[in-house]
Design a binder for these strands. Structure first.
Lengths: 235, 235
DNA sequence: GGTAAAGTTTAACCATGGTTAAATATTTTG
DNA sequence: CAAAATATTTAACCATGGTTAAACTTTACC
């Protein structure tokens, strides 16, 4: 009953997923950083690291942090695939908004079958991105690199496209929606005040000013056709 | 992390659900029967009964079996509601067949939000029955009685409607589909051989013979308009 | 009605995944 | 470069939900 037939527990899946995400930033993932990300204690993390190392899901050198093995990565990618497919499904099929999908997907990702995964994948016509612009890993464990650079570090004068947003802060996502920002929208960066001051954007005919913290949740890329009129794909 | 914020664990939900179903047959539910239903040991059940009694989800008299309190019933009904809504959703929205829905719903029922529940309820237009003809409890903890009597005990000569099937045996459900039996289909009972022998049915223009064991998975009611031609609602 | 069988509970144990406090490494800094 | 600060690990503990084996009730039957 506690086992429930699963090869890896939901807890293990959460650990592996968190490590995967953290190791995209830093070479090695430290105990404390992981503990903070998972909302648990460093002691609990250390114990789990030993267990995961025994199961060959990661390489663990005491005091030096961890790094996933390919086996660990495959599990992480499988869960991230579940998460992002579910997010997109909730948005498309059940009308969830992009600030609501993360919390629901967080619970469901551990409990769907391969069959369910395949069915929603097919129903969504084999999508490659989730509602936040994050890439959806393939079934066989490959994932595109993240796109975009932070809007918080953008220079005025550029014409850019909104490629991606951070997924796990509903408040930020609601704010962005209110401001008229959505995936694939084109905008011009009019101004970026020094001292982490606000950034002013032109969205179609509207001018909007947003703080640096919120801008940190947004990732952009230079417009492919910077000379043409911006195309507002936002609904 | 083990807590995960839930008031009741998935294990408790499974226990309460199993007890609810068993106590519809027998006044009190015994340790052994529960253990068999849950695929666990009698000792584990006893321990859990004490815990559930402490939490006032059931009344427990040692050696005498248990019965849910109203609180326990409400939890059971909530989970059964989840289960049956999910089953119907999987069938309608994702093309699952009636032999596939139970296993998937069994896992998902513990992990959906109230919001998810409401959304699929609305999307399905507030349904009252799942794909097996079982009633879907209301949000406030009320459930219709089960309909139908067993086809295994039916007398020849009747014209009947298929009201309900047992939900948790995929093989039986696939067999029934192959034989052309589905919910709401009308049929005439032509013959029922003694000694638990096979039952012969007329479905439209087809005549089918099924064993008593399979018939035990099917529940019927006398046709409301026994004089008219059978209406085949089956697709 | 006593005894055997069946059912139930208790006891001792295990694994998982948490906790806090203390001990030990590592890193930073004056 | 030593001491202080920080990070990490260990140890002892807890709760949940399982196990098996032994003890104890209840039921069934002669």
């Amino acid at each position: 009953m506690a086992d429930s037939g699963k090869l890896v527990s939901a807890a293990v899946e959460d650990y592996v997923k968190a490590i995967f995400k953290l190791q995209q930033e830093n070479e090695k993932v430290s105990t404390t950083v992981l503990a903070r990300k998972l909302g648990t204690s460093a002691a609990a993390v250390t114990k789990m690291m030993k267990q995961l190392a025994e199961n060959k899901l990661l390489d663990y050198t005491p005091y030096q942090g961890v790094r996933l093995t390919r086996s660990g990565e495959l599990i992480a990618l499988e869960i991230i695939r579940h998460h992002r497919l579910i997010e997109l499904y909730l948005q498309r099929a059940l009308g969830y908004s992009w600030d609501e999908v993360d919390a629901e997907a967080e619970k469901l990702e551990h409990h769907i079958s391969e069959d369910f995964e395949d069915r929603i994948d097919r129903m969504l016509d084999f999508p490659t991105r989730d509602p936040h612009g994050d890439p959806i890993p393939t079934r066989d464990g490959w994932m595109e690199a993240h796109r975009g650079t932070s809007l918080a570090t953008a220079e005025p004068g550029q014409r850019v496209v909104l490629m991606r947003v951070k997924d796990s802060n509903p408040e930020a996502l609601r704010l962005l929606t209110q401001l008229g920002l959505c995936l694939n929208i084109e905008m011009e960066i009019l101004d970026a005040q020094p001292m982490n001051g606000p950034i002013t954007l032109k969205l179609g005919d509207n001018v909007r000013t947003i703080g640096r913290e919120l801008a940190g949740h947004v990732f952009i890329e230079p417009c492919t056709y910077p000379d043409e009129e911006p195309i507002i794909v936002c609904s």
